[in-house]
């Protein structure tokens, strides 16, 4: 959605419009305050916020800077000033495991793309049914769908593992992708239901009069209008799947199938303790896609959270 050539300020501005719109009330004005004390107060607030922001972001910046330092420095240099930057850590880390890091990145990309495709297609189909169609037991299913949002994965992971191992899917990407094709990430169904409910029904009617069936209405009217909800789903699916450690740990066993989080963990268990520099470098590599998704998708992320309260 967001053009990569846009300036960050454009994104921030777009963000503001997307989030606050024009019809929402302005923020609370400081009615009773005069210029003098309110100015001091505002400065104090900003100092507090800047301090908090620095504290929050310091570990990330420090890891980034440290990834360009020799390992020995990592335990000596708590500051952010970088002298003699080196790419050694990246070169070492890339080839530190059995396979080059590109292999793990590729594995993660395959899983992420599969998950995104699965979530977008299956969740939008289910959402259309819940939001626009009337059928028997709809409310019962809708309630069940909402409840599955809160179901801990741990209660189904053991039988899932047994099932997938019996059909020979363990150590393939299928257990990580196929459930997404079946709309098991119910919060996205919910997000899309909310979105479709906000679209005027007259559009459906008009399409029906023009001879569209449900498939036509869904594919030609609803889907094109649902782009913001699809974008939110895509970005969240991307970040969550990219970070996902638990299910990869359960279902992927051989190093050539490892996703990035598993590779990092393997790295830490083998040589990591003696080579923090390289481990930091690969950690940074693993965080860059998340950061980019955040940078270019934050307006969808923030709107997604604000409207459904998903994580």
């Amino acid at each position: 959605m967001t053009n990569p050539t846009q300036q960050p300020s454009d994104i921030v501005a777009a963000n503001e419009v997307a989030l606050h719109g024009v019809d929402e009330p302005p923020t609370q004005p400081d009615v009773a305050e005069s210029a003098g004390p309110s100015r001091i107060r505002s400065v104090v607030k900003h100092i507090l916020l800047v301090a908090a922001a620095l504290l929050m972001i310091y570990p990330l910046l420090w890891m980034l800077v440290s990834s360009f330092r020799p390992t020995a420095f990592i335990f000596r240099e708590p500051g952010l000033w970088l002298t003699d930057p080196t790419l050694d850590n990246y070169a070492q880390g890339w080839f530190a495991l059995q396979h080059p890091f590109s292999q793990y990145l590729l594995n993660s990309i395959i899983v992420v793309l599969g998950a995104i495709l699965g979530n977008v297609v299956s969740c939008s189909l289910a959402a259309y049914a819940f939001a626009r169609l009337k059928f028997k037991f709809k409310n019962v299913f809708f309630a069940i769908m909402l409840m599955t949002i809160m179901l801990p994965i741990h209660v189904i992971i053991v039988p899932q593992y047994i099932m997938f191992s019996q059909i020979g899917w363990v150590n393939t990407f299928l257990p990580l992708i196929v459930p997404k094709l079946l709309a098991t990430d119910a919060f996205f169904v919910f997000l899309m239901v909310q979105f479709i409910r906000g679209l005027p029904k007259e559009l459906d009617e008009a399409a029906r009069i023009d001879g569209c069936g449900h498939w036509g209405i869904f594919s030609r009217v609803i889907m094109p209008l649902m782009v913001p909800a699809i974008a939110t789903t895509t970005i969240f699916t991307f970040i969550w799947t990219w970070n996902d450690f638990f299910s990869s740990l359960i279902f992927l066993t051989s190093p050539d199938k490892f996703t990035v989080p598993l590779a990092l963990r393997a790295f830490m268990d083998s040589t990591g303790m003696s080579n923090w520099g390289a481990m930091f470098a690969m950690s940074i590599v693993s965080l860059v896609p998340v950061f980019l998704a955040f940078l270019f998708g934050q307006r969808f992320l923030i709107r997604g959270i604000a409207t459904t309260g998903i994580k």
Partner: peptide, 26 residues
């Protein structure tokens, strides 16, 4: 207007997932 066929068709992936990925394993 009730439309069971279309409803269940659109819901089919989710229903299969519910049966095999969620409720069955539960």
């Amino acid at each position: 207007a009730t439309d069971n066929a279309a409803g269940y068709l659109f819901l089919a992936p989710w229903l299969i997932g519910l049966a095999f990925i969620t409720v069955g394993p539960m």
